[in-house]
Amino acid sequence: MFEARLAQSAILKKVLEAVKDLLTEATFECSDSGIQVQAMDNAHVSLVSLNLRSDGFDKYRCDRNLSMGMNIGTMTKILRCASSEDTVTLRAWDNPDNIIFIFESQNKEKLSEYEMKLINMDQEHLGIPETVYSCVVKMPSQEFARICKDLSQFGEAITIACSKEGIKFTAAGDYGNANIKLAQTAEADKEEEAVIIDMQEPVKLTFACRYLNSFVKATPLCAQVKLSMSGDVPLVCEYQIGDIGHIRYYLAPKIDD
């Protein structure tokens, strides 16, 4: 039997909102250590890696490893039926055809059950090598979302240049161009408002806006986002999910023809 309970469904609602633009279906790998998802978008340009540790759940039981193929659109619809304060329980039996979502209101007077059919999926698992990145930038997630949205008006791609002076985002298009520079924070009153740059070597990479704008749907999950970059390798855009896990987005850079 598999059973995982969160005291508040808000986290799971936000996770679904953070992946639904990129993924139509995904396999949820459930084991004793928690729930893991690794899936590429339809165009195989980006990769989503989600990790929810079992010790972050209020209750977690997984008697045997399960691979459950889920339709992300349906799952999003179901999670939208939960209030943020509802308790959510995921339940499946061994060799399941279905997964059950159970929402219980705070006053325990409303109990909702949604059963979703699982799908058989051919899954490709990609091996992500351990990488030491040339630049690792931590910045406010809302600021990153704002920059991606603003610069998307000027072009289809954003160039991110990171040096010890700061991080510069540039977009160029037919109507003009724009750039935004952020300096490393000298003194941040609040940790979550800080811009922190850990640079070994300067990096300049270009990424498609449409994927970055999908990644920033994870903004409600965490006040800070971590961007890890090295020359000619995919960007890692990471959001912590409370003390339960993280979501990482990998995006292949655009390269010169």
Partner: peptide
């Protein structure tokens, strides 16, 4: 001009 490569050209299918 820049072109887009796929993520699988960086990470091998296991």
């Amino acid at each position: 001009n820049k072109s887009q490569r796929g993520i699988e050209s960086y990470f091998k299918v296991q």
